[in-house]
Design a protein around this nucleic acid. Sequence first.
DNA 1: CCGTTCGTTCAAATCAAAATGAACAAACGC
DNA 2: GCGTTTGTTCATTTTGATTTGAACGAACGG
Lengths: 176, 176
Amino acid sequence: MARLQESLSAGIEGSDTAGDLHAMSVDFFVSFVQVFGLPKSIGQIYGLLFVSADPLPMDDIVSQLGISKGSASQGLALLKSLGAVTSQAIPADRREHFEADLNVSRIVTHFFENRLQPRLEHGDRRLEEMLELARAAKRDKKGGGAAAVLTRIQALQKWQKRGRNLLPMVVRWLKR
Amino acid sequence: MARLQESLSAGIEGSDTAGDLHAMSVDFFVSFVQVFGLPKSIGQIYGLLFVSADPLPMDDIVSQLGISKGSASQGLALLKSLGAVTSQAIPADRREHFEADLNVSRIVTHFFENRLQPRLEHGDRRLEEMLELARAAKRDKKGGGAAAVLTRIQALQKWQKRGRNLLPMVVRWLKR
DNA sequence: CCGTTCGTTCAAATCAAAATGAACAAACGC
DNA sequence: GCGTTTGTTCATTTTGATTTGAACGAACGG
């Protein structure tokens, strides 16, 4: 962050409102993305773009945030795939310029559909298998609480279904 | 996991239905808790208790999962605080015995209220500060896009509010 | 074409979160 | 009380994820 402050204020004004705002935005989005278990660099990049008046080329991002070219490249790739940044063409400059896209419902939807749903579905399958095994165990009269375990698994399945119903509702609600 | 299989099947039956079920449950809950960014050990412990007919003492958990006493102790403490396990007294055995509590809505609610809400509220405050700075920047005519940034921050605030409204709705829905 | 700029990839280094285990404290039985 | 069992704490170690940076390839401009 030293880098950020430094290069932005560059010995001009005293209170450096712009630099503070940049730093805050970076901070804000870093903790935001961490809620979703995404790497910090993602938040830094988005935070910077969010308060930038114009689209920035990658090397500006690298130098302003003091991160490596590799991180920036990978981070921007992910952000693009999330629909959170878009590239803008700037006349007479062949570098890609990136702009933050405040597309919250798209981003959250993407997150749900790509990170949560697959897990839920995989979970479904495994629960089904567990149920099968538990039934077998009960038939074979293995162990004392086979019936109790069976009941538990079935209860869990109900919750799983509930969760799977909830997600689309949330997505719909976010979309309006 | 070698430990789990080993101690459970203990050279009795061939196909080891019970051992498979245990392993699967552990697996299932490990990936479940990881969605919420909780440590793996939490999932292991809960997964084991979930398919155990009777409450287990800590040393059983330690030996069946092959984890350390420290992990088990800390993990159980967290699970208790989540209301996900409860201790049962077993006559003539002074060790604490733990039982899985299939209390999904309580657990998820706890997660929302303790992990998400505080972050959202902290975010609120920071957004407010950012807005203040952006207004100042605009007044001082710093930078070209001060007005655009202001608009963005306000839009973000709207989304933040939306999110904060959504959470209680989700919680209510989960509770019935 | 050839040199330069831009961007990606991936093995290695770094870093933070979690697990370990030894030391400690508390509760019990004798 | 005194030794033993049970459970917690916390400094150290381990592990896994992220970041780095050097090497590479592609696209452009002259």
